[in-house]
């Protein structure tokens, strides 16, 4: 790839759960402005990797460097201050309060009272959530809750957004809209997406990183990844995985 500035880098990152090495030495480099996709079979360690990047899990070994800062041992609330936002796999929203209040709590952290309201209005209309702004989030459909979370992450205006399965439980139409949204946000923000939906990845992907058994198996353009025999074997179970 080009010689762009590296914004996020992990060095020999490792996570052990008892005797299991969920992440077994990952060297990952992400350039500013990228739209990267992470794929891999279930249990490959994608979500564990995301959780370590956002201090939801402590790495057993290795180092995480973000924008020149070592954030390996940072507190979870510091991660947002550094400029990383994450949408977890299971929608991580405030179920008991309204859509507006969900977004407010995110926006108000980053902005003053006036600016926060402006940001909320902007994101509500961009995500077409205006009509349901006063609905309790717990009563929304799965796809809408995903968007609320996506909205919460984007109003924080992070430098890097991590999206763990952003289209899970969405209809084809919703998935297409999500793809468009991601591309739009990517114009100003670096994004990493974990997905299983190959159709979706083909829509958005430029560079794809394949995880397998806690390691990076391959990293290339989508076309090359699809032609890669090792990757095909992993997914079809011919070798490697048990």
């Amino acid at each position: 790839m080009s010689e762009r500035e590296i914004i996020l880098e992990t060095r020999a990152l490792e996570k052990r759960f008892g005797g299991v090495r969920a992440i077994a030495g990952v060297d990952f480099r992400l350039a500013r402005g990228e739209l990267r996709c992470l794929i891999g079979p279930n249990g490959a360690g994608k979500s564990t990797f995301f959780k370590m990047l956002t201090a939801q899990l402590r790495p057993s070994a290795g180092q995480i460097v973000f924008d020149g800062h070592d954030i390996t041992r940072a507190q979870a609330h510091r991660i947002s201050r550094h400029g990383i936002g994450i949408k977890n796999q299971v929608p991580d929203v405030y179920d008991g309060i309204t859509v507006h209040e969900n977004l407010w709590l995110a926006a108000r952290y980053r902005h003053g009272p006036r600016a926060a309201q402006a940001k909320i209005d902007e994101i509500l209309s961009r995500l077409e959530l205006v009509a349901i702004a006063d609905t309790i989030v717990g009563e929304l459909a799965h796809g809408q809750r995903q968007w609320v979370e996506f909205g919460m992450v984007t109003v924080l205006e992070p430098q890097v957004i991590l999206l763990d399965e952003p289209t899970a439980g969405m209809t084809i139409e919703e998935t297409n809209r999500t793809a468009a949204l991601i591309k739009e946000v990517n114009q100003t923000t670096t994004i990493v997406v974990v997905e299983h939906d190959m159709q979706f990845i083909r829509q958005i992907a430029r560079t794809v990183t394949v995880f397998h058994q806690g390691k990076i198996l391959a990293e290339d353009t989508m076309e090359n990844i699809q032609r890669n025999q090792t990757v095909r074997d992993v997914y079809l179970g011919k070798s490697g995985g048990a």
Partner: peptide, 15 residues
């Protein structure tokens, strides 16, 4: 109230 609803999310927002 955010803490009651979801402490981890509140933390990930930066609080």
């Amino acid at each position: 109230v955010g803490l009651r609803e979801n402490e981890r999310r509140t933390e990930l927002l930066g609080y």
